[in-house]
Amino acid sequence: METIPPSNFPATRAAGVAVDCMNYKMGTPNRLFQRQQVTSARKEIIAGVGNKYHLAFSIKDSINEQPEIPCTVEVLYYSDKNNTPDVKYNLKTTPENYTAAKDQDFYSRMMNNKKPLIAEDIPDKFGAVTPEMEPVWNLAIAAAGLAKWKNATEETLFAMTIIKKVEQLITSNALELNYDLLIHDMVSQEVIPWRIEVKWDPSGGLKVKNHKRLPKQNADHK
Protein backbone atom coordinates (compact mmCIF):
# COMPACT_ATOMS: atom_id res chain seq x y z
CA MET A 1 0.00 0.00 0.00
CA GLU A 2 1.37 3.34 -1.08
CA THR A 3 0.25 6.85 -0.16
CA ILE A 4 -0.47 8.89 -3.30
CA PRO A 5 -1.10 12.64 -3.76
CA PRO A 6 -4.84 13.19 -3.19
CA SER A 7 -5.18 15.90 -5.84
CA ASN A 8 -3.51 13.90 -8.63
CA PHE A 9 -5.69 12.24 -11.22
CA PRO A 10 -5.44 8.59 -10.14
CA ALA A 11 -7.09 9.55 -6.83
CA THR A 12 -9.59 12.08 -8.20
CA ARG A 13 -10.78 9.82 -11.03
CA ALA A 14 -11.39 6.92 -8.62
CA ALA A 15 -13.24 9.27 -6.26
CA GLY A 16 -15.41 10.29 -9.20
CA VAL A 17 -16.37 6.66 -9.83
CA ALA A 18 -17.38 6.25 -6.19
CA VAL A 19 -19.59 9.36 -6.36
CA ASP A 20 -21.18 8.06 -9.59
CA CYS A 21 -22.05 4.87 -7.73
CA MET A 22 -23.45 6.84 -4.76
CA ASN A 23 -25.62 8.98 -7.02
CA TYR A 24 -27.01 5.89 -8.69
CA LYS A 25 -27.88 4.40 -5.32
CA MET A 26 -28.88 7.52 -3.35
CA GLY A 27 -29.76 10.09 -6.00
CA THR A 28 -33.37 11.10 -6.54
CA PRO A 29 -35.09 13.57 -8.89
CA ASN A 30 -34.39 16.15 -6.18
CA ARG A 31 -31.09 15.06 -4.66
CA LEU A 32 -27.57 14.62 -6.08
CA PHE A 33 -24.23 14.42 -4.37
CA GLN A 34 -21.02 16.18 -5.26
CA ARG A 35 -17.55 15.37 -4.12
CA GLN A 36 -15.40 17.75 -2.12
CA GLN A 37 -11.58 17.66 -2.35
CA VAL A 38 -10.01 14.25 -1.74
CA THR A 39 -8.17 14.48 1.59
CA SER A 40 -6.26 11.21 1.66
CA ALA A 41 -5.45 8.58 -0.92
CA ARG A 42 -3.62 5.28 -0.95
CA LYS A 43 -3.08 2.86 -3.79
CA GLU A 44 -2.87 -0.89 -3.32
CA ILE A 45 -1.55 -2.98 -6.19
CA ILE A 46 -3.04 -6.45 -5.89
CA ALA A 47 -0.99 -8.82 -8.03
CA GLY A 48 -3.07 -10.66 -10.59
CA VAL A 49 -6.23 -8.73 -9.65
CA GLY A 50 -5.85 -4.99 -10.21
CA ASN A 51 -5.41 -1.63 -8.50
CA LYS A 52 -7.39 -0.68 -5.44
CA TYR A 53 -7.71 2.93 -4.28
CA HIS A 54 -8.50 3.77 -0.65
CA LEU A 55 -9.80 7.32 -0.43
CA ALA A 56 -11.29 9.80 2.01
CA PHE A 57 -13.38 12.84 1.10
CA SER A 58 -16.73 14.41 1.89
CA ILE A 59 -19.84 14.51 -0.25
CA LYS A 60 -22.35 17.33 -0.32
CA ASP A 61 -25.88 17.52 -1.63
CA SER A 62 -25.61 19.93 -4.55
CA ILE A 63 -29.34 20.78 -4.61
CA ASN A 64 -30.41 20.99 -0.98
CA GLU A 65 -28.75 22.80 1.90
CA GLN A 66 -27.48 19.85 3.96
CA PRO A 67 -24.34 19.19 5.99
CA GLU A 68 -21.37 17.55 4.27
CA ILE A 69 -21.03 13.82 4.85
CA PRO A 70 -17.49 12.49 5.36
CA CYS A 71 -16.88 9.15 3.73
CA THR A 72 -14.23 6.56 3.02
CA VAL A 73 -14.31 4.56 -0.18
CA GLU A 74 -12.52 1.70 -1.90
CA VAL A 75 -12.46 1.48 -5.68
CA LEU A 76 -10.96 -1.63 -7.26
CA TYR A 77 -10.18 -1.53 -10.97
CA TYR A 78 -9.61 -5.03 -12.29
CA SER A 79 -6.65 -5.74 -14.57
CA ASP A 80 -9.15 -7.57 -16.75
CA LYS A 81 -10.94 -4.60 -18.33
CA ASN A 82 -14.06 -6.71 -18.96
CA ASN A 83 -14.79 -6.56 -15.25
CA THR A 84 -16.46 -3.41 -13.99
CA PRO A 85 -14.82 -1.72 -10.99
CA ASP A 86 -15.84 -2.73 -7.46
CA VAL A 87 -16.95 0.21 -5.36
CA LYS A 88 -17.40 0.09 -1.58
CA TYR A 89 -18.29 3.17 0.39
CA ASN A 90 -18.82 4.02 3.98
CA LEU A 91 -20.71 7.18 4.94
CA LYS A 92 -20.27 8.68 8.39
CA THR A 93 -24.00 9.41 8.46
CA THR A 94 -26.71 8.09 6.17
CA PRO A 95 -28.76 10.93 4.69
CA GLU A 96 -32.45 11.00 5.68
CA ASN A 97 -35.08 10.85 2.97
CA TYR A 98 -35.56 14.63 3.14
CA THR A 99 -36.75 14.99 -0.47
CA ALA A 100 -39.69 12.59 -0.04
CA ALA A 101 -42.39 15.27 -0.40
CA LYS A 102 -40.79 16.88 -3.46
CA ASP A 103 -40.24 13.44 -5.02
CA GLN A 104 -43.91 12.56 -4.49
CA ASP A 105 -45.01 15.84 -6.12
CA PHE A 106 -42.83 15.17 -9.13
CA TYR A 107 -44.10 11.63 -9.39
CA SER A 108 -47.75 12.70 -9.29
CA ARG A 109 -47.16 15.43 -11.84
CA MET A 110 -45.44 13.07 -14.26
CA MET A 111 -47.97 10.26 -13.84
CA ASN A 112 -50.81 12.71 -14.52
CA ASN A 113 -49.28 14.15 -17.68
CA LYS A 114 -52.06 14.42 -20.27
CA LYS A 115 -49.51 13.59 -22.92
CA PRO A 116 -46.36 11.62 -22.06
CA LEU A 117 -43.33 13.89 -21.79
CA ILE A 118 -41.06 14.28 -24.80
CA ALA A 119 -38.26 16.84 -24.57
CA GLU A 120 -34.89 17.62 -26.15
CA ASP A 121 -31.65 19.37 -25.24
CA ILE A 122 -31.69 19.72 -21.48
CA PRO A 123 -29.88 21.96 -20.61
CA ASP A 124 -30.01 24.12 -23.73
CA LYS A 125 -26.84 25.47 -25.32
CA PHE A 126 -26.73 28.32 -22.79
CA GLY A 127 -26.89 25.92 -19.85
CA ALA A 128 -30.51 26.71 -19.00
CA VAL A 129 -32.83 24.11 -17.44
CA THR A 130 -36.47 25.09 -16.82
CA PRO A 131 -37.60 24.48 -13.22
CA GLU A 132 -40.12 21.81 -14.26
CA MET A 133 -37.40 19.89 -16.12
CA GLU A 134 -34.89 19.97 -13.27
CA PRO A 135 -36.08 16.70 -11.66
CA VAL A 136 -36.01 15.00 -15.09
CA TRP A 137 -32.44 16.20 -15.52
CA ASN A 138 -31.38 15.20 -11.99
CA LEU A 139 -32.82 11.71 -12.50
CA ALA A 140 -30.77 11.41 -15.70
CA ILE A 141 -27.59 12.33 -13.83
CA ALA A 142 -28.34 9.77 -11.11
CA ALA A 143 -29.07 7.08 -13.71
CA ALA A 144 -25.98 8.02 -15.74
CA GLY A 145 -24.06 7.28 -12.53
CA LEU A 146 -24.56 3.58 -13.21
CA ALA A 147 -23.29 3.76 -16.81
CA LYS A 148 -20.33 5.91 -15.78
CA TRP A 149 -19.40 3.56 -12.93
CA LYS A 150 -19.83 0.34 -14.92
CA ASN A 151 -17.73 1.64 -17.83
CA ALA A 152 -15.02 3.32 -15.78
CA THR A 153 -11.35 2.45 -16.10
CA GLU A 154 -8.25 4.19 -14.80
CA GLU A 155 -8.25 5.96 -18.20
CA THR A 156 -11.72 7.55 -18.03
CA LEU A 157 -13.34 10.52 -16.33
CA PHE A 158 -17.02 10.75 -17.24
CA ALA A 159 -19.49 13.59 -16.81
CA MET A 160 -23.12 13.68 -17.96
CA THR A 161 -23.31 16.50 -20.48
CA ILE A 162 -26.90 16.86 -21.67
CA ILE A 163 -30.13 15.01 -22.31
CA LYS A 164 -30.41 14.93 -26.11
CA LYS A 165 -33.88 13.47 -25.84
CA VAL A 166 -36.15 12.07 -23.16
CA GLU A 167 -39.37 10.15 -23.72
CA GLN A 168 -41.87 9.04 -21.12
CA LEU A 169 -43.52 5.66 -21.54
CA ILE A 170 -47.20 5.23 -20.74
CA THR A 171 -47.26 3.29 -17.46
CA SER A 172 -49.45 3.01 -14.40
CA ASN A 173 -47.25 1.87 -11.51
CA ALA A 174 -43.83 3.51 -11.96
CA LEU A 175 -42.41 6.38 -13.95
CA GLU A 176 -40.48 5.11 -16.97
CA LEU A 177 -38.22 7.40 -18.98
CA ASN A 178 -36.03 6.55 -21.97
CA TYR A 179 -33.08 8.89 -22.14
CA ASP A 180 -30.66 9.58 -24.98
CA LEU A 181 -27.76 11.21 -23.16
CA LEU A 182 -24.43 12.68 -24.13
CA ILE A 183 -21.66 11.76 -21.70
CA HIS A 184 -18.29 13.53 -21.87
CA ASP A 185 -15.11 11.61 -21.21
CA MET A 186 -12.54 14.18 -20.09
CA VAL A 187 -9.59 11.88 -20.83
CA SER A 188 -10.41 11.13 -24.47
CA GLN A 189 -12.42 14.40 -24.77
CA GLU A 190 -15.08 12.43 -26.68
CA VAL A 191 -18.77 13.19 -26.19
CA ILE A 192 -20.45 9.79 -26.24
CA PRO A 193 -24.14 9.14 -26.97
CA TRP A 194 -25.65 6.79 -24.42
CA ARG A 195 -29.10 5.23 -24.24
CA ILE A 196 -30.36 4.79 -20.69
CA GLU A 197 -33.80 3.38 -19.83
CA VAL A 198 -35.00 4.25 -16.37
CA LYS A 199 -37.75 3.14 -14.02
CA TRP A 200 -38.41 5.17 -10.90
CA ASP A 201 -41.01 5.62 -8.20
CA PRO A 202 -40.74 7.29 -4.79
CA SER A 203 -40.88 4.09 -2.75
CA GLY A 204 -39.07 1.68 -5.08
CA GLY A 205 -36.32 4.14 -6.02
CA LEU A 206 -34.26 4.17 -9.19
CA LYS A 207 -33.70 1.21 -11.50
CA VAL A 208 -31.82 1.34 -14.78
CA LYS A 209 -33.45 -1.23 -17.08
CA ASN A 210 -30.88 -0.86 -19.86
CA HIS A 211 -27.86 1.23 -20.61
CA LYS A 212 -25.99 1.13 -23.86
CA ARG A 213 -23.19 3.15 -25.37
CA LEU A 214 -24.16 4.17 -28.92
CA PRO A 215 -21.93 4.75 -31.94
CA LYS A 216 -20.41 8.21 -32.32
CA GLN A 217 -22.50 10.76 -34.21
CA ASN A 218 -21.03 13.25 -36.60
CA ALA A 219 -22.87 16.46 -37.42
CA ASP A 220 -20.95 16.75 -40.71
CA HIS A 221 -22.50 13.53 -41.99
CA LYS A 222 -26.11 14.12 -41.03
Binding site: D124, G127, A159, M160, T161, I162, H184
Partner: peptide, 13 residues
Protein backbone atom coordinates in the same frame (compact mmCIF):
# COMPACT_ATOMS: atom_id res chain seq x y z
CA UNK B 1 -17.39 23.96 -13.36
CA UNK B 2 -16.61 20.48 -12.02
CA UNK B 3 -18.76 18.64 -14.56
CA UNK B 4 -22.34 19.37 -13.48
CA UNK B 5 -22.92 21.54 -16.54
CA UNK B 6 -19.46 21.19 -18.08
CA UNK B 7 -19.18 23.12 -21.35
CA UNK B 8 -22.78 24.38 -21.17
CA UNK B 9 -22.09 26.46 -18.08
CA UNK B 10 -25.26 28.48 -17.36
CA UNK B 11 -25.11 32.16 -18.22
CA UNK B 12 -25.95 32.89 -14.59
CA UNK B 13 -22.47 31.62 -13.69
Amino acid sequence: DNGTYGFALPEGQ
